[in-house]
């Protein structure tokens, strides 16, 4: 369980970092907070030759905003996001999601970019060498078996990041940069939907910024997370909801996103049709919860049986919508 050896790079500007990424032909693994990557290295799940720490690149840290958009640097800590008054007032779900990650020491280290790029997880994959020895590698480990669903042809590992569902609910985007170019994509496009390689980002690219459009009018949001313990645990199910209403309390727009319900965050697209132009009523919330239930893909590869987790999709979808509605001031 010791950290294997690696070469350490520590650029102090973004330009240097992007240069290094090109120079090392994608073999320089970016190290943000390290709270995900280092345990994976200790378990022997990944073996980067070069670790490139981003902690000294101050231009990647901090929260800024103008009239239309909020900008969160990729290296901004989850603690800062959780405690930001601006986020607590205008982007409650994002603040709640950041505050629900792991435990305070991990939130001090963990960053928004790191959290977004978190790898998918599975009980049959996130195990020590001791546990895995003697077993053939699974799909996620580059092999061609699945221990979670024996006989299956694909990987069923689960995306358990907390921030992504909340950010997607706000239609957030990310800026991805490489030497000489930069692109901005909606966050949902960051995810491939494949458990084997869930994050679509090239080896020489860096996620540098999260951009959240500031919603207009009257709205509320919420992130609800189901887990066994009130600290440390990844979500076993989570739901983020964004809800904007007009002066007659009719829904102008709604977005509901599930976490830990498949290899990528799951957008419950039915929500818009069900609620738009209507008042928020229990029957509509139930209908969305039902749609969420149908969209969630779950197998027995996390802390609780899939059957129970799936039931919880309904409960937490409802709670997220209700809390989002109740948070409207």
């Amino acid at each position: 369980m010791r950290l294997p050896s690696f070469n350490y790079l520590e650029p102090i500007t973004l330009t240097d970092a992007l240069n290094l990424m090109e120079e090392y032909h994608g073999r320089a693994q970016p190290l943000a907070g390290g709270t995900e990557l280092l345990p994976r290295m200790k378990l022997g799940l990944t073996h980067p030759t070069y670790l490139m720490s981003l902690k000294e690149i101050h231009e990647l840290k901090g929260i800024k905003s103008n009239k239309n958009e909020l900008y969160i640097g990729g290296m901004t800590s989850l603690r800062e996001i959780f405690l930001s008054t601006l986020l607590q007032q205008k982007f409650l779900a994002i603040s709640e999601a950041a505050g629900s990650v792991a435990a305070p020491p991990l939130r001090n280290m963990g960053t928004i970019a790191g959290n977004l790029c978190q790898d998918t997880r599975c009980f049959f994959y996130n195990q020590s060498y001791f546990w895995r020895r003697g077993l053939k590698p699974c799909f996620k480990a580059g092999g061609n078996v699945c221990y979670a669903v024996p006989g299956s042809k694909k990987c069923f590992s689960v995306y358990q990041g907390d921030l992504a569902p909340a950010l997607i609910a706000f239609n957030a985007k990310v800026r991805i940069e490489k030497k000489g170019s930069s692109r901005i994509i909606p966050i949902e496009e960051l995810f491939s939907g494949k458990g084997e390689k869930p994050i679509v980002i090239a080896d020489d690219e860096l996620l540098t910024q999260v951009i959240v459009p500031i919603p207009e009018g009257i709205y509320g949001s919420s992130y609800r997370k189901f887990r066994l313990r009130n600290a440390l645990d990844y979500p076993l199910v989570s739901a983020a909801a964004f809800l904007a209403i007009d002066s007659e309390k009719k829904v102008k727009s709604v977005k509901v996103v599930l976490g830990a319900a498949g290899p990528a965050p799951v957008i419950v697209k039915e929500a818009e049709d069900i609620l738009k132009g209507k008042k928020v009523e229990e029957s509509a919330i139930n209908e969305i919860a039902e749609a969420a239930y149908k969209r969630a893909q779950m197998v027995d590869n996390l802390g609780l049986p899939a059957s129970y987790r799936k039931k919880m999709v309904r409960v937490f979808t409802k709670r997220a919508i209700e809390n989002a509605f109740n948070s409207i001031k």
Binding site: A103, R229, N230
Partner: peptide, 8 residues
């Protein structure tokens, strides 16, 4: 094997 944390 889940044991409670201080938060629980």
């Amino acid at each position: 094997y889940i044991i409670p944390t201080a938060m629980d």
